[in-house]
Amino acid sequence: MDIENIIAFTLRAGVLASTAFLAAGLVFIGLPGWQAAASGMISAGVIFLLATPVLRVLLSILMFAMEKNRLYVAITLVVFMNLLIALFVLPAFLH
């Protein structure tokens, strides 16, 4: 399996995992006593969804490194850094 297929597989697996969590959460949220667990599942679904493109960028760094394409390793690192800034740095200033 080449790495392009791994990226395609990751995208699909990420979407499946997150929709499974979201759907399970929506089913359980109607049951008495399950509210906390259900909203936890839904949050997990959202986190999986958000993590999928980030993981995709990380895998692309690996792909370009294996192709020994230095320019694209650097380009992808910049994209990855932008995502990290949006995810972890800026939220600290937004409250």
């Binding site: 959202v46 995709r56 995502l83 949006a86 995810l87 939220p91 409250h95």
Partner: peptide, 13 residues
């Protein structure tokens, strides 16, 4: 997806 992930992180915050 990557573009939206950057915006989503900020909308979540």
């Amino acid at each position: 997806g990557v573009t939206a992930a950057a915006s989503t992180a900020i909308y979540l915050a």
